[in-house]
Amino acid sequence: MNTQKTVRQEPGTVKENALRLDTGKAEQIVEALNADLANAYTLYHQLHKHHWNVEGAEFLEVHVFLQEVYEDVEDAADELAERLQALGGVPHGSMTTLAEHATVEVEDENVYDIRTSLSNDLEVMGDIIESYREHVELADSLGDYATGEMLREQLETLEEHTHHIEHYLEDDTLVLESATQ
């Protein structure tokens, strides 16, 4: 490992940016986006865990669906981090820091039935949706319409996935409980 270390920017700092957004305004947006980034990685890992552990008659469909969702969440996280950097901030990059700054509750290590897992995903997604709405308002109020638009697009995708999970959790199914009924 290279022993020479040159720190270009410390975490928690915001430098001037080429986007010409006032540093004070950028600081507020960077803080909000870093929370969104931490939440995205929390959701990503939870969805991935459920993708690995899903079982049952609907295994393949749910397995594929969860992969689509966690890939979208990962893409959103990348977009958030790049926007943070463009605004002059430092995106959270370590697992410890991400865990410390997530505002959503992390599911434990247990493996749950898929209905419980999807319910837990729905809860985290709902919290993230609420946070995104607040951060869209913040960005717009500070004149950062590009960040607001980025968050709106991510919000739309997340809401669509949330709606699909809501359908998975409905009581109606084509799968029979037992052949003796």
Rank of each mutant, 00 (worst) to 15 (best):
V14P: 04
W52R: 06
Q28W: 01
R20D: 10
E27Y: 03
E31A: 15
L47G: 03
L19R: 12
T13Q: 14
Q46C: 00
I29V: 15
Y44G: 00
E27S: 13
T42S: 14
Q46H: 07
N53V: 00
A26I: 01
R20K: 13
A35I: 14
A40C: 11
A26Q: 03
Y44D: 02
L19K: 13
P11Q: 04
V54S: 03
A18K: 14
I29Y: 06
Q46M: 14
V14Q: 07
L19T: 07
N34W: 04
H45I: 08
N39K: 07
V30I: 08
T13V: 11
H50I: 07
W52I: 05
L33D: 01
V30Y: 13
V14C: 10
E31F: 07
L19D: 10
N53E: 12
L43H: 03
L21Q: 04
Y41H: 15
T13D: 10
N53Y: 13
A40M: 08
A35L: 12
H45W: 10
V14F: 11
N53C: 09
A40Y: 00
K49G: 03
Q28M: 09
R20G: 00
N39A: 05
L47D: 00
N39T: 04
E27M: 12
N39R: 07
D22T: 06
W52D: 02
H48L: 11
E31I: 01
N39Y: 06
V54D: 02
A35K: 13
K15H: 07
K49T: 02
T42L: 13
Y41S: 11
L47F: 11
Q46L: 01
V54W: 07
D36M: 12
A32G: 09
G12L: 10
T42D: 11
N34R: 05
Q46G: 00
K15W: 08
V14E: 05
N34M: 01
N39Q: 05
A18W: 07
N34C: 04
H48I: 01
V54E: 04
A26P: 02
V30H: 13
E16I: 04
N53F: 14
K25S: 13
P11V: 09
I29D: 05
T42M: 12
H50F: 15
N34K: 02
T23H: 04
D36I: 03
I29F: 09
A35D: 10
W52C: 04
A38V: 05
H45E: 01
G24S: 10
P11Y: 07
V14D: 11
G24N: 15
K25E: 06
E16P: 05
H45T: 11
L43M: 10
G12T: 08
N34E: 05
